[in-house]
Design a protein around this nucleic acid. Sequence first.
DNA 1: CCTATATTGAACGCAGCCGTTCAGGTAATA
DNA 2: TATTACCTGAACGGCTGCGTTCAATATAGG
Lengths: 204, 204
Amino acid sequence: MRDEKSAGRPKDPDRRDRILRAARTLFLRDGFDGTSIEAIAREASVSKVTVYGHFGTLSALLEAVVEAEARAINRALSAHSIPDGPPETRLTDFGLHLMALLRRHDAQDLEHLVTARARDQPNLAEIYFRCGPARGMEMIADLLPPDLGDRAPQAASALFTLWSGGEHHRAASGLRAPLTDDEMARHVRQSVDIVRKAFFTASR
Amino acid sequence: MRDEKSAGRPKDPDRRDRILRAARTLFLRDGFDGTSIEAIAREASVSKVTVYGHFGTLSALLEAVVEAEARAINRALSAHSIPDGPPETRLTDFGLHLMALLRRHDAQDLEHLVTARARDQPNLAEIYFRCGPARGMEMIADLLPPDLGDRAPQAASALFTLWSGGEHHRAASGLRAPLTDDEMARHVRQSVDIVRKAFFTASR
DNA sequence: CCTATATTGAACGCAGCCGTTCAGGTAATA
DNA sequence: TATTACCTGAACGGCTGCGTTCAATATAGG
């Protein structure tokens, strides 16, 4: 079922790749509405008909882009092993890695793309959320002290919100300059500290 | 200077109002790129030339809409007087009022409009941020215990982030159904509790 | 070699919005 | 009343993207 070879010339995977990359570039630069299939075809050095052949819809292209990006981030996230130690240390380590990763992948702008399309493309929002924030909170929950019980999801949600909220407000305020590595590290640490004081029993 | 009456027929303020309301409706429903001046003119039952006469640009219209909305929210926020009591009670009261207000004004969607345009219209982002999040954090800071010192801004930022983060993630995940009043109240209270445990010295 | 499919470049008609112009009617001020 | 500016409806040329079609060429498997 999986690799049914139909007769005739197969679709060129390299072209497919170029189209995806072009779509990613243009979506991030010009937004969904600002991006046309014709522009993507130009950017990918491919004919318009080919784009229609591989995807068929701008929405389908966006979906493919978001899914690919979510997979890539998750892969990188799983590859990173966290050294042993107390929860606050491990959480900080994870947070630093997560924030750096999200920045490298323009996660902020990807999220804007998704939220902008959430009304017309709810499945897209679902893909993003499942592989994005939801997955992140799961991984946080795994690093929390085991004695939190049913308060673990709440703590994970709070920490994730604090971590990502800073960048979010910066973007909303039009400040495009990213945080320094130092500022980011401090922010990650402070957020962990808030959650520690609010939720951890032993080290209060 | 302010009310210089130039001769001739003055611009009809009612028409201006209809245009603004139509713009707000369409911007929220279809986004910035999905909204055209012609559509706004239709929706406002006004000729296209009149829209150009009153505003001239789609960006100017968006700016006017956002500014009007920010003013309206701030007016309502100032009108609400908070009963005396301990900081956690006053913060909760303020939070409940704030969240209800933001929902009623579709603040979530307005913010999406702003962030989407932040790159091309940085002044818009500034208007929004100054009258929006920044103003909110100031008001929070005023309700915090006075002994926080230089940690007050940090606490205010954390609380604001926690409050608005929940709705934000719901929107990002495509869940359009709003929180129940009860769920919202619990969320506001829990966020206050986190900040209290993390920052307040006396009641720790 | 044969066949089925991909790919290309070009063109198609259609639709929407842009920003402006014009003539003709309207309403406020001096 | 005369003046001045507003408002309307319609039209303008131009642009861009849509989604499809066509003939010509290229490239895989059988």
